[in-house]
Nucleic acid binder design. Structure first.
Lengths: 211, 211
DNA sequence: TAGATTGTTAATCGATTAACAATC
DNA sequence: TAGATTGTTAATCGATTAACAATC
């Protein structure tokens, strides 16, 4: 069943999109979809989709298409979305609060255990039952509770320092919203959300389209 | 000077990162940098960097390196960051407010003119001098004022509808934070920030690293 | 001049697309 | 069976890396 011999990153990048569309099809009680139809939804070519899905099991049937239920479950499992993850947010500013309030992530098996900040005014407040604590307590907190993911929502000048604290506390993955390339050992997973770069790209294409 | 014969998308994706590092070097008053050194900062190979930069002018000097000031200015201009852009946010929830409050975007020549929402409690409030108005007023607002960029921060079920309103109001680019692939004519620029996909990738690599 | 580093071409690598036999 | 669609190989395309002559 598993053919997981190091699937390339470009394939992995596409998986969450497959997952999202399959989820909607499951909700709509659709049973089967062909690579061509899935291509229309995702914008990928049918050929690319067949190549991608073949990296994993074989849930396709010739002359028929793909079983949506099975494919959905399988991709969910490949992405690891059938497990539970604990996270903390560092930085209770607007962005940190927005993420804490975003309940949709729950569906990815994702629970935010605590938010840390330096601002005394915020400390001991709660966001959706999630407590905000003093950043000085993060060390002892991480010793007490196994946390998988640290979400960095602090200004960029503090991002590297926060990273160190997280790594010391045995956090294995960092979701970084600070506009900086944080440094970490190679066994630490880093996923950057660089909104400024995204916006800069948008502006580039906006100008290009004017020509 | 311009060799802008359709630069490939992978190169464009890298430009904002060059820009960010060059900006810091400018601040530090560094004059020159070699492709090798810039490679250490960005994580790209020196060879790739030389190829990339050659798509544009020639600000390199053999035996010497790249003039940082010039290169910075040029990339700024290529990205279109030396112009002014007007934007509106649709959706004054946590995410919309976080973006409205994020002053760092100002440096990209980016001004948020108005926020629209359906919630009567929010309407007529202000975020950093930016007024929140009723979504029903968006049509007349967009007729009055030329807006370049619409920022979608509404729930996914409303995203497509909002898109239509923006396009009707002559908005040319959409920065989409809703977890859905919105549909628009091909002349409309769409830049997606799919946080759920980003998180799903993070979780995948987190699991993979456990093996 | 000698040393360094770019600009640029050629070689390699990887990803996408096309094609079609296998098979449901 | 006939029609449809996958699975998979081969062909194409594009991006990256290597190499080195040009030149500051």
């Amino acid at each position: 069943m598993e053919k997981n011999k190091s699937i390339s990153k470009v394939v992995i990048r596409r998986l969450p999109k497959y997952y999202r569309h399959l989820e909607e099809l499951v909700k709509k009680d659709v049973d089967v979809i062909s690579s061509r139809e899935l291509g229309e939804k995702t914008g990928f070519t049918a050929s690319k989709i067949r190549q991608d899905l073949n990296h994993f099991g074989d849930f396709g049937q010739q002359g028929y298409g793909y079983n949506i239920q099975e494919l959905y479950k399988q991709i969910k499992s490949i992405l690891g979305l059938d497990k539970e993850y604990k996270a903390v947010i560092i930085g209770a500013g607007n962005l940190g609060q927005a993420i804490a309030n975003y309940t949709r992530f729950d569906k990815l098996g994702f629970e935010i255990k605590c938010i840390f900040d330096v601002n005394p005014k915020l400390i001991d407040m709660k966001i959706r039952d999630i407590p905000i604590r003093d950043i000085d307590e993060i060390n002892s907190f991480l010793e007490m509770e196994k946390i998988h993911i640290g979400i960095i929502c602090v200004p960029k000048r503090n991002a590297q320092d926060v990273t160190k604290k997280l790594i010391k506390g045995n956090v294995k993955a960092i979701w970084n919203f600070a506009p900086i390339d944080i440094l970490a050992p190679s066994n630490i997973i880093i996923e950057n959300v660089h909104l400024n770069e995204s916006l800069a790209r948008l502006i580039y294409f906006l100008n290009e389209s004017d020509d």
